[in-house]
Write a protein that binds this DNA or RNA. Structure first.
Lengths: 212, 212
DNA sequence: CTCACAATACCTAAAAATTGGTATTTTTCA
DNA sequence: TGAAAAATACCAATTTTTAGGTATTGTGAG
């Protein structure tokens, strides 16, 4: 059995039900003294400043902050806390980025209670947890003939644009420079003979239906 | 207080932690007799066949099945169960699709415990729950009702945005001030719960397809 | 009649997209 | 092994969109 004093945890996640679920699952663990929840990063930052928790559980996308920025901001105000990502993004590149920013663990929300508790216990002892992830399947299948003039990367970026991500957000997700994403964006519009991103989205959406 | 006999629920979701969270949140509700969990659709189908539950809680994306296919397969083996989507996809188009396939509710995972229990209670009484849509939805032409929250002018401008016109161009065509067009653009995005014009275009294009 | 909503318009600041370049590295394949 | 294509990255200037407001006028339903 492990022997460490009781700890405090701040959980920052805008998915209320998930947060409540986490709370009722691990809230009773003996080593946890205090588990508080915040919906936004700014809310979370205040809690962290006040409580100075040993652990922070952090969702990757938050309404007021995204991705590694959240890690940096947490580090800025309280460098001693161990940051555990707890997120839907099962992207190895994203995970790698988080590791570089100093997170101590990166856990998919599909984790079991047992593994979660284990990762928490490890984190307290400064043992990192970075599982092997299988990357997401490509969002655009190769069969969409009209898209075949586009490269793989271009298709990927076209889809993210369609979902409403900005170039900066896409760059972050794909671990690219924003310049690169904008170059791809330009090439996409040009290759398809379109005028702007609105037409690009309309074009892609139409293809999805025609071939479904 | 509602008065219905105790019910069985099958929850199909590959996010274990979330499932466990749901279980510990609502497992003690008096009206729930039995709450069992499956990680995959095929596993879930067997449970449904065996248990014949009143409710099925269903994640939209599963390792062995995705989206509306899961709904269809559930219907195939046990048409009487009420299917409640419980998913990260807070996408109006996806929700619409699920409603058409006969789901009785579509709940984001960010839902609170209170709202979840409410939706479950409603579902048992065959009252659907589709957030951000009209409370008692007509069974015909729902897609129109989604556009009906928009005013005439807003629809008109939404269509022009979809065609790739800029605000300035739209203003010129409609003899409006560019300020006005931008105000409409803002209201459109806000009314439909979207993030930006790219999502607006995707939304409108989807609706067009559904009506054809 | 009045109250809510639609439609219009204005302002500013900031963020994002677009345009028009260039240029290096990496990958693919003939 | 070369050449082509793809992917990456950078710079600067401009346009467009987004976000925070406010405010006036018209219009239809209760």
């Amino acid at each position: 059995m492990l022997n460490f004093s009781e700890i405090s945890i701040v959980h920052i996640d805008d998915h209320l039900l998930f947060a409540q679920g986490v709370y009722s699952l691990i809230g009773n663990e003996t080593f946890i003294q205090n588990l508080v929840h915040a919906e936004t990063l700014s809310e979370g930052l205040e809690l962290v400043k006040k409580i100075q928790p040993e652990l922070v559980l952090l969702d990757y996308f938050l309404p007021d902050s995204k991705g590694v920025e959240s890690i940096q901001k947490l580090r800025d105000i309280y460098p001693d806390c161990r940051i555990i990502l707890l997120t839907m993004e099962n992207n190895p590149e994203v995970m790698e980025k988080c590791r570089r920013e100093g997170a101590i663990a990166y856990l998919p929300k599909s984790i079991s209670k047992k593994d979660l508790v284990e990762a928490l216990e490890n984190a307290i002892q400064d043992i990192p947890t970075f599982p092997q992830l299988s990357p997401d399947p490509p969002l655009v299948s190769e069969s969409k003939s009209q898209l075949n003039i586009l490269s793989k990367r271009e298709k990927q970026i076209a889809n993210l644009i369609t979902k409403g991500y900005t170039s900066a957000e896409i760059a972050e997700q794909l671990f690219l420079s924003e310049f690169t994403v904008n170059t791809h964006r330009r090439n996409l519009i040009h290759k398809l003979g379109l005028k702007n991103s609105a037409q690009l989205v309309a074009f892609i959406e139409n293809l999805k239906f025609k071939e479904s």
